[in-house]
Design a protein around this nucleic acid. Sequence first.
RNA 1: GGGCACGUAGAUCAGCGGAAGAUCGCUGCUUUCGCAAAGCAGAGGUCGGGGGUUCAAAUCCCCCCGUGUCCA
Length: 750
Amino acid sequence: MTSGAIPPPANPLTISQPVLRFIDLEEVGRSGRHMTLFEMMAHHAFNRPDHEVYFKERTVELCHELLSGELGADPRSITYKEEVWEGGGNLGPSLSVGASGLELATLVFMEYVRNGEALTPMPLTVVDTGYGLERLTWASQGSRTAYEAVFGAEYDELRRTFPPRESAILIDHARALNFILSDGVVPSNSKEGYFARLLLRRSIRILSKVPDPPGLLAILDRAGRDIARDFPEIGEHRDDLHRVVEAEIERYAEAIQRARQTIRRQEERVRSEGGQIGSDQLLAWYDSLGVPPDVAVEELQRPPAIPEDFYAQVAARHESERPTTDYIDRTEGLPEVPGAVPPTEVLYYLDPHTLSFEGHVVHAAGPWVVLDRTYFYPTGGGQVADRGHLGDLEVVDVARKGPWVLHRLERDAPFRAGERVRGKVDPKRRTQLMQHHTATHLLNGALREILGPHVWQAGAYKAPESARIDVTHYKPLSKEELRRIDRRVNEIVREDRPVKSYFESRNEAERRFGFTLYQGGAVPGKELRIVEIEGFDVEACGGTHCTHTSEVGAISLLGVDRIQDGVVRLTYASGERALELREEHEAILAEAARRLGVPVDHLPDGIDRLLAEVEETRHAARAKAKDDLSATAEELLADPARTEAVGGTTVVTARLDLDRAQLMELSRLLGRVAGRVAILAGERDGRGVLFVGSTAPGISAASVVEAAKAAFAGKGGGNPAAATAVGEPGTPLERALDEARRTARRAAGP
RNA sequence: GGGCACGUAGAUCAGCGGAAGAUCGCUGCUUUCGCAAAGCAGAGGUCGGGGGUUCAAAUCCCCCCGUGUCCA
């Protein structure tokens, strides 16, 4: 709007909107004036050379009239401080307006565009103002802090239990939470969800510090009551908001519970090693376990002092982090189109059923072709592009760039500008995409209906093979919820409701359907394309859709994932593709049943039997291996050539055709009786392996191996009970074995 | 989006380069009219997945996956 690309909805324009501000979070309750949420009122003017609305003088005049006239401020107390404002590449002078030292408004006059160091005048100048409603309220009442003026009785009520700062934080957070939670934000560990979590957990912490505290839900309700008059959805979503908050309370309690346990164990370990918990450990616990320092200290027997600047130190821990922005440029790889090329008339919006058409080539470069009109749908809104043919050539991709639709052909386009060309959209693919897109809207509607109004689309993707929708939700979907969602969407399909796609003015659409229209994100423009599934779901959407729900065909849910904290993904297919998948699945089941030799309906039992059999076989094999080794052990002990008694120690020496693990097991069996030394040799990949086990007191297996390993250039080691070494290929393993035996004998000898 | 912590038996966790453990739960036996309880015995593990280093990896390194948490 400031650049003039999009016309303002009105000129002059007034707006009033709630604004969330998190950077001053620590100041809330402390400064007496900061809040996480406030109402910002504004009046704007967009001055074109041919149409001057108003600029500096009139703006100041209007502001002054409001403050001194309408609101009755003493004109002598009103101050104007001149500053330079810069933002979004634009800059200009600004005035900070205050009364009796309190800043009430900012008046910005955008005049210049910055290009590096150079400033060029803007094609249109803009008046941008901001008046803080809460500040005006405060100024008009003259109370000690803004909280008393703004929150009134709700604040006073909390003051009976809490100190001023805590009372202010509680009521401030409760008001902000009412807004963000009823706006579809679900508490989570990233992005806006984290702000919701932060506000909730800060509130819970404050409440937990007093005995018998008021309930968080009650505080939220009280804070929401007033604003629900202007924002009715806050009242309407009350029950859903309660469920979201309750889930978060529970989750936090679990996290703290786990953390307490971890803290106790860690202190025990540190103390057993003679150490002590330091304040740096408190920081680490807060960071990784989420446990506030005062809670951690409760668990410790010898707690460190909590640093005064604890939260500043937390911030310092995160200072060196550099957020990388994975900015994806959708127009990357697309060719430049000369500005003189006329924009493409897009016909798929109005008529998704016409798939064969004629158009004129208006631009062609390499494989890319722009037509004057097209029915090809370009990739966008989470729906992949159509395929088909232009003339005899295959269209392999379709993309949108600015006002043009670009068709990419399988090879360089033989067309010249002005040429007439026949386009054919692949009907099977298009039908499937339409079914998946409409199915996505159906799922979105059903999810909101069944899970609650906090559900908001967080992403979607519609391909011919399958489609998926990501929605905000605070816990995993239960089997029962999935079943109900499945039933509900297929019910709407069977009811054959009309799906209407039409254009409507933004204001009118918002008035009729509310902001839930913007499931796919904000859409620019004064006109919106609305896709309305009658009586069920309405969204602003540019995709191609069926005209009746029955055309979608049966929808099969294929999977559900939690893709991140607070976001659930459903994958599904409908129409022909759903049938294909069903056939595939049935074939897999039939084949599995055939291989198991059971009827399909006995498959689970058949698998159980098979698993039991496998288990049994494994058991038997293990037992047999053990028996074999036991037999070997008996043989060795009975063989005078391999077993000798020295003092109270029995030394068993043998070279066997066994691997490392088997040598180890055999040594263990020989060592069942105390006072035995097992010196066993085997081979692996042409290298000699020596394994020594000892249950004889005073004879260390490690020292035996240490003494013997030089004989076969071995590397290895171990502990007093067991040790092993592997030699170089071609070295005499026998010598190592002898050396080990001599060492053991010497150690055992009298 | 980034940092940190954590993934080991059905559950909760210990072990942090040398022969996979504890507690609870489970099964059996002893005891009891029976239950609870106790004692004894036993089953249960590709130590999240994949690479690498090493004579030797649950343990060290790298890459994934999952969970938690803090910060934008």
